[in-house]
Design a protein around this nucleic acid. Structure first.
Lengths: 155, 155
DNA sequence: TGGTAGAATTTGAGTACGCAAAGAAAGATA
DNA sequence: TATCTTTCTTTGCGTACTCAAATTCTACCA
C-alpha cells in the first residue's frame, strides 16, 4: 500500500515538474534509455521491455515524441519487421534540460529523507520485486543518460 | 526508478488478478477504506485524499462502483455540499471475495522475497516518502478491511 | 441583510495507457 | 517452392485517470 501511494505521489509530482519541459515521466525514461544506448537507438520491443510498457504503449509514446522531433524512426536493414527509435539531437538537448531539474528534485526528495545507507538498502529491497531488478538495465539510467548527453554535446 | 518499475509491475499483476472479481486496484482500495470506516461511509473529499486521487477521479471511480451496486451515495444532513460514499452489503461481499485472493497474492509476492524484518524496514522507509505515511490511514487497510468484512458477515 | 470568499462536487476535454485483433515480414517445415 | 508458425508493429476500442471550469452550498463580514 505504501508503495502504491508513494508511487502515486511521486508520479504526479515528477510529471508536474517535467511538464515545464514538455515531458512526462515515461517520456523522460524513454529518452534516458535511448540516450544511454551506444547507438542512440533501440528496437521498439526492447524499449517496451525496458519501460515496462506494452507494445502499443510504446507505439503511442513514440508517436508523441516523434511529433515533437525528439526521436525519429529508423528501419532495420536486415529485418523489415523491426523499426528502431533513435534519439535526435533535439531529444538529447531536451533530456539534458529536464535531467538537471529532475535529478535535483530526486536529490531533494530522497536526500532529505534517507541516509546513503538507507537509500542503498531501499534500492536493494525494491530491486527484489519482479521487474524492478537490474536485469534489463541499470537502476538509474538517468544518471548515465545525463553523462551521455554531456558527452554527446562535446562538453 | 526501481520504485517506478516495481509499481508498474505490481499494478499490472494485481489488476489482472483482481479483474476476476471485477475490480481494479483502486476499486479495491476504495472499498477497503469504506469498509474500515466505522460507519461504512466517507466523504468524497476524504476518500480522494486517502486514495491520492483528485476529486474528479473519485467521482468517476464511485460512478463505476455505484453502477455495480457496490457503493451508494448518501447526502449529508448538515452540509448540502458533501455527499458520502457508503459501502453496500454487496460491496462488502465483493471486497471479502477479492481480499482473500488478493492478500494471498500479496503474501506470496512479499513473503517469498523478504524476511519479516526486511519487510518492516521497507515499509518504514517507504513511509517516509511524501503521502505514503500513516497520516491519512493505516499502512495496510486491506487487513483491517478483511476483518471488518468478517465481522460484518457475522462470522 | 446582502455580498463575498472558500469548500465539495460534477462536468467537459484531453491524455496515457491496456487489451485484443490485424498486418507484414522472417524463419521453419514439408 | 509453398505453407505455417512466430515475431514485431500498428490500430480500434475501452478505461482510468488528469486539469480546468462550472455549480452549489456554507461561512464570514460589513
Amino acid at each position: 500500500m505504501r508503495l502504491l501511494r508513494a508511487h502515486a505521489n511521486m508520479t504526479r509530482d515528477f510529471n508536474a515538474e517535467l511538464q515545464s519541459h514538455g515531458l512526462t515521466v515515461t517520456d523522460f525514461e524513454a529518452l534516458s534509455r535511448l540516450a544511454e544506448s551506444p547507438t542512440g537507438s533501440l528496437r521498439r520491443v526492447d524499449l517496451a521491455a525496458a519501460l515496462r510498457l506494452t507494445p502499443s504503449g510504446v507505439t503511442r509514446l513514440l508517436d508523441g515524441l516523434q511529433g515533437c522531433g525528439l526521436v525519429c524512426k529508423e528501419a532495420c536493414s536486415t529485418d523489415a519487421r523491426v523499426s528502431y527509435a533513435h534519439i535526435t539531437d533535439k531529444g538529447r538537448e531536451r533530456l539534458a534540460g529536464a535531467a538537471s531539474t529532475h535529478l535535483e528534485a530526486l536529490e531533494g526528495l530522497f536526500g532529505e529523507r534517507f541516509s546513503p545507507q538507507e537509500l542503498s538498502a531501499l534500492c536493494e529491497l525494491l530491486g527484489r520485486l519482479p521487474g524492478a531488478g537490474g536485469d534489463e538495465g541499470p537502476a538509474c539510467p538517468a544518471l548515465n543518460a545525463a553523462d551521455g548527453v554531456a558527452a554527446a554535446k562535446g562538453t
